[in-house]
Nucleic acid binder design. Structure first.
Length: 1156
RNA sequence: GGGCUUGUAGCUCAGGUGGUUAGAGCGCUACACUGAUAAUGUAGAGGUCCGUGGUUCGAGUCCACGCAGGCCCA
């Protein structure tokens, strides 16, 4: 014998984890799983790079389990799955961590610390927790190439990024524009969102707020407003920043908000006006107590102003309406015909103001975005150099054109100010430290409101307290201000992106169509610029005046340009070979323009999301190296990350892929040959969050954070992985509960382990050894063997389908149901005797082989989710025949389950009829058990018969094939099939609602009443002739569902259309047999108590006790002897040292002894 | 505020296209079984299917409006 199957007293899943891990490492199984498939079709997976400057958490375990599952399964299916690890190394989090470590701020960079030192520190810090990450990756069994990862800060990676950017640049998809960002005029610098979140930045301040009147132009769209108006019609819009009113170019309403038109009077000029505002905000401006006042009776100057609501309508009706510019000081530079109209925006609320938002595209991010979407121009002018600038300069002061108009207004309306204000004195906030305590001091907002009041353009002016951000350096108010930025023109390919998105298989679908799809529809250009230090530099050089520029797309190109620069006498020396592309070195490179001017690099870095989104190309240093590898692995078949990556990595991958397909002929050719319409990934799973067991977010503050390392080492990786996949689909949030892991262990792994132990125990006793070359022919398999084999084949089909459809939960549950319900609780339980009884026959061999195959295939199917235990199981099943398998080149020659080829389902071995029959058998047994239970008759007492109502012949035929199994399982002698001829069966009918509903609809109640009223004869007619007319309804057989009535006088149970009756009369004969079986049970218990081996033979002595017992033991003595391995069974008058055994109804004295 | 999403037994989850007794596992209780025994079977208790309206002969399922949680974005 080559070797026994290993038997285990107890099982430690964590220990299995570490043992298998050692095996994998020692034998390089992961490496082999990739190299083994050389030449096979490739399945491409892209690893989204984590950042190693934070520690990994439990949520990384679920994300990486999802990734790992499909890579492993595809390998099992025969694909080659290369998976390169990667690290995200740039960006703000790294910078912040360094600043925290060094105790510095951004301001100190270039002063206390050089950019060079700072970036060096970033480079060191970024891999701070790499060891922990690698450790987690390994321990949880996530197979990814950690030896050759891509690193986003590497020179090669950056070169690929530059190449990509240059492709975009060449097609004019990379351009310089502006975006609205927080800006501090006092400090003269932009602020990051992080800086705005510093404590104390948001302060409560009192500002002048204005509800301004925007005068509507009459046209076909606005006509409905003029029909009800008594005067000019105005839309009311509220602002807390009156200084933005001169640059207003649009009004924004909510499409779903309800608005009203009100005829009333202006409270400052007392002129009649007709105003439009949100219905919900009416009460803010019109007092209920003035409701009764008549408009006709109003006299100028009256404090109580009458009003009349003349109509109500939705915001939708206001869209497209034009109005006269409120403060016509400066005209738009372009698209003037689009300016000054009403548009819809999703950010409009009815919490404050008027339900209408005044929009100034140059000074508000929302405003800017909405204006872009609707093609509304900003209000800008050209400066002396010809650049487009907003109406407020970088010092926070109105430009002269506006200043001049304001100065006129001050003079015209005689506004008193603390000093003479000239055209250059109108600062929008007090940035010049004017004396605010001066009694005539008026800030610009106040001056604007006075002018508007005088001009009948202000409906209400009041001080308003709100929180407003301030610059942490200067303590002065921040402005939202247009700042230069480089953009990728994603809007140019917006439709293409949306269209191609439809070719991507999203799990769950809603993330793709909803979250991602909607996001694409509302796409704005991608702001690429970051004013930082540690990141990929923008490869664009410009002359001082900005007339000439160049975008560099490779190291060669840069070297070349530097050479030119040296020749022009600008640069002194060529770049060293190890030249670092980061700041500050790259900033020292000064190139020369065609006209001989020096060109300086644009100081921006690019958004780190571009780094990660470019990984399909940059991970291979494409197109400078590895072209073939890239071509073979583009696009990805599969990616997976958290749902929070939807607008992050998922977007940048998609956006870059779609754009580069348009920009690069090379990529286009690759896509063409790969049949790729231009996407970066075909299938994507976006997994949910991991919450604590109560559904709360994990946080350090709440102290409910689950440590992944502790969890893995306590339960072992497989239990954790299985639990995460089996419990709920990964895209649902997971309520992480240790109890769930314990349950998985007991319910699934425990059962599977028991099944293996059972196999090993008896296989070793019988000396069974798997022989791949010599299997029992199918014709020698028992019914149950064929059944579980069929189930197993069906399982392969089902699990393969689930994995192919990226449904890991369905796969896990199917495997689990197979093992628990079918393999363990039915096949093994019903077959136990076959394994321990008798000689090593063909039938016994068939049983071993069937169970063996079930376990082996289970190991394969589960190996993607629980790779360690599956490996362990596989090795226990196959290690002893490895050498033979290698010699014979049979499937089990592989040392690891992860190197095997998945067994293919054979349809010839699937027997759906049998599966169906067995399903009936299981259900009938359950019903009989339930009757026994209710009648208090234990299973050891045999019963005479089961009555089974038969409604159609095929049902009876099915049951007959599994009759023996049912009878043995529930200890009953026969099944009697009863049909119409028996006279016992009473049929009843029920309406077949789905069918009838379509036909009768509203008459449903009548029909079902008629059907319920059918008597026995009528049912018979319907059944025989297939049709019946009653009460005006023509019924056919398909209109009803026939089932069996309870059988009078019998113990009956029914469930799901299946009815079973049981003869519960216990005859003397049955009673005796029951006693014999009880006796066997007691003897077995004694054997066990006395610690006998399974193979020990015994002799039994029993003290005589009444007729019934004597008769039972005599009559069934052969049976008893066989069951208990007794050589003799003697009835004696008295026995010394006898054990008293309780037989429920009486006590027997028994002695057993071992026979040598 | 917007987009997406979740809400079914004490807990974790199933419940194509609407069809009349809403299921499983765990947990709990009781009984049984016993050559897998730290396993197994059966039964019992446990539900306003988040709420309110609507469509329909019929709604856990479809629609509308809410409520509560989550994510992303403002």
């Amino acid at each position: 014998m080559a070797g026994k199957y290993k038997e285990y007293k107890s099982l430690n899943f964590a220990q299995i984890g570490s043992e298998i891990l050692d095996f994998w490492k020692k034998e390089k199984i992961f490496e082999k799983s990739v190299t083994n498939r050389e030449g096979a079709p490739s399945f491409t997976f892209y690893e989204g790079p984590p950042s190693a400057n934070g520690t990994p958490g439990i949520h990384h375990v679920i994300g990486r389990t999802v990734k790992d599952i499909f890579c492993r399964f595809k390998t099992l299916q025969g694909y080659q799955v290369k998976r390169k690890g990667g690290w995200d190394t740039h960006g703000l989090p790294v910078e912040l961590q360094v600043e925290k470590q060094l105790g510095i701020t951004k301001d100190d960079i270039g002063k206390k610390i050089s950019i060079e030192e700072y970036n060096q520190k970033c480079r060191e810090t970024v891999m701070m927790y790499k060891d922990q990450w690698d450790d987690l990756t390994e321990k949880m069994g996530y197979w990814v190439d950690l030896q050759h990862p891509y690193i986003t800060y590497s020179k090669e990676y950056i070169e690929s990024l530059w190449w990509l950017l240059k492709q975009l640049y060449n097609k004019k998809l990379l351009y310089k524009g502006y975006s609205i960002q927080p800006f501090s005029p006092a400090a003269g610098t932009g602020l990051s969102s992080h800086e705005l979140n510093l404590p104390g930045c948001y302060k409560d301040v009192k500002d002048t707020s204005i509800v301004a009147q925007f005068n509507i132009k009459k046209d076909h769209k606005s006509d409905f407003l003029f029909k009800k108006a008594n005067a000019d019609v105005f839309i009311l819009a509220w602002t807390t920043t009156p200084w933005t009113l001169p640059s207003n170019t649009a009004l924004v309403v909510g499409e779903k908000i309800n608005y009203v038109q009100v005829n009333t009077f202006n409270p400052y000029t007392f002129k009649p006006v007709s105003v439009v505002l949100a219905k919900d905000l009416l009460g803010k401006y019109f007092s209920e107590k003035n409701k009764g006042l008549k408009l006709s009776e109003y006299k100028s100057g009256d404090k109580a102003i009458p009003y009349e609501i003349v109509q109500e309508f939705s915001g939708k009706q206001l869209i497209g309406i034009k109005y006269n510019q409120l403060m016509p000081y400066v005209q738009p530079l372009y698209d003037a015909e689009k300016a000054f109209q009403v548009v819809a925006g999703d950010f409009v609320t009815t919490e404050d103001g008027t339900g209408v938002v005044h929009s100034s595209p140059t000074f508000g991010a929302d405003d800017f975005r909405v204006a872009k979407q609707h093609g509304i121009p900003p209000l800008t002018v050209r400066d002396d150099a010809g650049n487009e600038i907003p109406t407020v300069d970088r010092k926070g002061k109105f430009i002269r054109e506006v200043g001049a108009k304001l100065k006129e207004g001050v003079a015209k309306f005689g506004i008193k100010t603390h000093k003479l204000l000239d055209v250059d004195d109108f600062y929008v906030k007090n940035y010049t430290n004017e004396d605010e305590t001066h009694h005539d001091y008026k800030n610009t907002d106040v001056i604007i409101s006075i002018i508007l009041k005088e001009e009948n353009k202000a409906f209400k002016v009041e001080k308003y307290e709100h929180t407003y951000p301030h610059c942490w350096r200067t303590d002065k108010p921040v402005l939202y201000y247009p700042l230069d930025s480089w953009f990728i023109k994603t809007t140019a390919l917006k439709d293409k992106m949306a269209e191609l998105n439809k070719t991507i298989n999203w799990k769950p679908e809603s993330t793709g169509t909803g979250r991602f799809g909607n996001w694409l529809e509302n796409l704005v250009d991608w702001n690429l610029s970051r004013s930082r230090y540690w990141g990929t530099p923008l490869p664009i050089w410009k002359t001082k005046e900005g007339q000439e520029e160049i975008c560099i797309g490779s190291m060669d190109e840069l070297t070349n340009e530097v050479q030119k620069s040296i020749q022009a006498g600008i640069m002194k020396a060529a770049l060293p070979p190890e030249f670092d592309l980061h700041r500050p070195y790259v900033d020292d490179v000064i190139l020369v323009s065609p006209s001989g001017q020096p060109m300086y690099r644009e100081p921006d870095l690019i958004d780190v999301w571009f780094d990660s989104g470019a990984m399909p190309y940059a991970q291979w240093h494409y197109p400078f190296e590895n072209k073939e590898v890239f071509e073979k692995n583009y696009p990805a078949d599969f990616i997976a990350e958290g749902v929070d990556q939807t607008r992050g990595w998922f977007f940048t991958l998609h956006a870059i892929a779609v754009m580069i397909n348009e920009c690069s002929d090379e990529i286009k050719a690759v896509n063409l040959s790969n049949g790729n319409p231009g996407i970066a990934f075909k299938n994507v799973i976006s997994n949910g969050l991991v919450l604590d067991k109560n559904g709360n977010k994990m946080s350090k503050r709440l102290g409910n954070v689950v440590n992944p390392f502790e969890t893995l080492s306590k339960y072992g990786p497989d239990l954790v992985r299985w639990y995460m996949m089996e419990n709920a689909p990964p895209w649902d949030n997971l309520k992480f509960d240790y109890d769930g892991i314990v349950e998985v262990q007991r319910r699934f792994f425990g059962t599977l382990q028991n099944t293996y132990s059972f196999f090993a125990l008896y296989a070793n006793i019988d000396g069974f050894e798997k022989d791949e070359m010599n299997n029992v022919p199918a014709s020698n398999l028992s019914l149950l063997d064929r059944w579980i084999t069929s189930k197993l084949q069906s399982l392969i089909v089902e699990v393969t389908k689930a994995y192919d459809e990226y449904e890991p939960t369905r796969a896990a549950r199917a495997i689990q149901d197979f093992v628990n319900d079918h393999l363990s609780n039915w096949y093994v339980r019903l077959n136990r005797k076959r394994f321990w009884k008798g000689e090593f026959s063909v039938d016994k061999k068939a049983a071993y082989e069937t169970l063996y195959e079930s376990l082996m295939v289970t190991a394969q199917l589960m190996s993607a989710i629980a790779p360690f235990y599956a490996e362990w199981l596989y090795k226990n099943l196959t290690d002893n025949i490895r050498q033979k398998a290698i010699a014979n080149k049979t499937p089990l020659r592989h040392e690891s389950v992860h190197l095997t080829d998945l067994v293919k389902a054979e349809s010839s071995r699937i027997d759906m009829e049998l599966e169906l029959s067995m399903d009936y058998a299981q259900r009938i047994c359950s019903l009989v058990h339930s009757i026994r239970k209710n009648s208090k008759i234990k299973v050891r007492t045999p019963l005479q018969k089961i009555l089974l109502p038969v409604l159609d012949k095929s049902f009876a035929d099915r049951i007959k094939t599994v009759e023996d199994i049912i009878l043995a399982e529930v200890n009953v002698k026969t099944i009697q099939y009863i049909d119409d001829t028996s006279g016992v069966l009473v049929k009843k009918v029920k309406p077949n609602f789905p069918k009838l509903g379509k036909q009768y609809g509203p008459k449903m109640k009548e029909v079902s009443a008629v059907i319920s009223s059918l008597n026995k004869e009528e049912i018979q007619v319907l059944e025989k002739q297939g049709a019946l007319s009653k009460s005006g309804f023509d019924l056919v057989l398909e209109d009803v569902l026939i089932s069996s009535e309870d059988i009078p006088g019998w113990a009956v149970a029914s469930e799901g259309g299946l009815t079973v009756a049981l003869d519960i009369r216990v005859t003397d004969e049955l009673k005796k047999e029951g006693i014999a079986r009880d006796f066997v049970n007691r003897v077995q218990n004694l054997r066990k108590e006395q610690g006998l081996e399974v193979l020990d033979k015994i002799s039994i002595e029993v003290e005589k006790d009444g007729e019934a017992v004597t008769a039972a033991l005599t009559e069934f003595s052969d049976y008893i002897s066989t069951e208990t391995q007794a050589l003799t069974l003697e009835l004696k008058d008295s026995i010394a040292d006898a054990t008293e055994v309780d037989m429920d109804e009486f006590v027997l004295k028994v002695r057993i002894s071992v026979m040598k």
